[in-house]
Design a protein around this nucleic acid. Structure first.
Lengths: 141, 141
DNA sequence: GTAAGAATTAGAATAATTCTAATTATTGAG
DNA sequence: CTCAATAATTAGAATTATTCTAATTCTTAC
């Protein structure tokens, strides 16, 4: 997979501005740390890496910067079903739709074969015991 | 979507036994509460519902029961990327593979159109702004 | 240059989950 | 049947990840 190129500080500022946010040295460093090592770090790990370059930064600021970068679509949160784990006794293959307006979660039926088609995308040697598909958005009745 | 039928206490015991676990009154009540109202409750919500029937149960036991039911494949955890949120600067459409052996997460390229195909499964009126696909398993090199 | 708003900081607070130690229940061997 | 071993439960403490708070600093626009 070709990597996402690191954008320039000017472009970063512009992206942030597009969401009504400012650029700051902290946000630049947090972003460059993420692009520099693409191993899906946690906020704590980002904090540790950023501190090497900017020892006075606080964990709260790292959270703030990550939130800003996610908000302006420069960074994705990998597991964004934040909050408590939810449990589901439906054993049929299905996806979940998380309604951002109501906070509720609905099951979405999947046609047979779709999961297999997805599994087929895995490189050889990758054996997936589970596939989780989550949609996030709004349902208009 | 046709609902998962509630299995009998005997079948529940058998399923649990298959994973080296025992059946208990607490596990039966937790399971029946999940099947009784399929709204993807949190552990806390399960706790509240179960207490109505079994006031002496503890939250720790509810967690234990849920874990047991997940382990014997009677219940699915809806957001199972437990632990800290991870961040990813890769903006190309891609899925994630979470290696259970190493705890690491890899990006998985997706062919163009696959996300659209997935979105097409949504009932009308459902508008998804994000689709998250997570594989869990092992990668054998 | 100054006022208003935004961002940062340290540390406290909260929320979800896991751990601990004591107790109770169940199972299997004899 | 009885007893030891193991499993499950309980209450509460501990931990972990995240968010909040209040004080301070930085930017931007006028």
């Amino acid at each position: 997979m070709e990597p996402t190129a690191q954008i320039s500080p000017a472009a970063l500022s512009q992206k942030l501005a597009g969401s009504g946010l400012r650029n700051t040295p902290q946000r630049e460093v947090v972003y460059s740390v993420l692009v520099g090592k693409r191993d899906h770090p946690t906020a704590d790990e980002v904090f540790a890496r950023v501190k090497a370059e900017m020892p006075t930064i606080s964990l709260a600021t790292v959270y703030n910067c990550l939130e800003a970068l996610v908000q302006c679509n420069l960074v994705r949160q990998v597991n964004f079903e934040r909050g408590p784990t939810r449990y589901c006794p439906n054993l049929h293959p299905h996806a979940h739709f998380h309604d951002e307006a109501t906070g509720s979660t609905h099951d979405i039926d999947l046609p047979p074969g779709l999961l297999e088609q997805l599994r087929a995308q895995l490189p050889s040697g990758y054996r997936a015991s589970d596939v989780e598909i989550t949609f996030r958005g709004r349902a208009t009745p």
